[in-house]
């Protein structure tokens, strides 16, 4: 465990907290892409299958995996029941079939090993790298976003971005660790997808202005 990994995981937890807090206090999920949330649940379910198979890693590891699956399922539950009237499917129109299909193809083309577990792990990594697209697309369609929603997107993006210095750290100091090429490539791609958002977030939201596309 190094500082970047810790901050990354913390950032992920914070993003979940921000999203649930936004929905509970405003009694609304407007501006939140249901499709992105569904993709994240798929990501966690497929990646954390190792909860049942793998040798035990640590209490921290198990707890975090359960928290990510559970909070993701809870978010979808809230969005599809209590706050359903506040969700506007007309602006959440990104075609996620392409993201699911593309991730599956990538996982089948370059599996770390030819086993179901390894392919599902790779699938989840590729899918996570693009799961934010419906959300970013929605922001782009409306041309603006509530400040709280942008904090959520930022915290979620920072999580994967912070994994990059974590991998550099592991590469240099953690001699036992074998870096996962797929995770690194997908992680870089994921961070790249956020770069436009990060830029506007820094130049506008951090200066107290509303998130508005130019």
């Amino acid at each position: 465990m190094n500082i970047f990994r810790m901050l990354g995981d913390l950032s992920h937890l914070i993003s979940i907290f921000i999203l649930l807090h936004k929905m509970q206090t405003s009694k609304s999920c407007s501006g939140v892409s249901f499709k992105s949330q569904v993709l994240y649940l798929v990501v966690y379910v497929f990646r954390y299958l190792d909860l049942f198979t793998n040798p035990f890693m640590s209490y921290y590891n198990t707890l975090m995996k359960i928290v990510f699956i559970a909070s993701s399922a809870y978010t979808i539950y809230l969005m599809s029941t209590v706050f359903k009237p506040t969700h506007d499917p007309a602006i959440d129109t990104f075609k996620i079939e392409y993201l699911l299909g593309g991730s599956l193809v990538m996982a089948l083309l370059f599996p770390p090993k030819w086993t179901f577990m390894e392919i599902s792990w790779a699938f989840s990594i590729w899918l996570e790298s693009v799961a934010i697209l419906p959300q970013l697309f929605m922001v782009q369609r409306t041309g603006e976003a509530e400040t709280i929603t942008t904090h959520y997107i930022f915290a979620l993006g920072a999580y994967r971005a912070l994994y990059i210095p974590n991998w550099i750290w592991r590469y240099m100091f953690d001699k036992k660790a074998k870096l996962e090429t797929i995770a690194v490539v997908a992680g870089l791609a994921q961070t790249l997808l956020y770069s436009d958002f990060f830029y506007i977030y820094w130049t506008k939201v951090m200066k107290g202005k509303k998130f508005q596309l130019p």
Binding site: R5, M57, N61, N166, K175, K178, E180, A183
Partner: peptide, 10 residues
Amino acid sequence: KDDLVKHDEL
């Protein structure tokens, strides 16, 4: 080198 990174990282 061990292969556990993919199960350790979240």
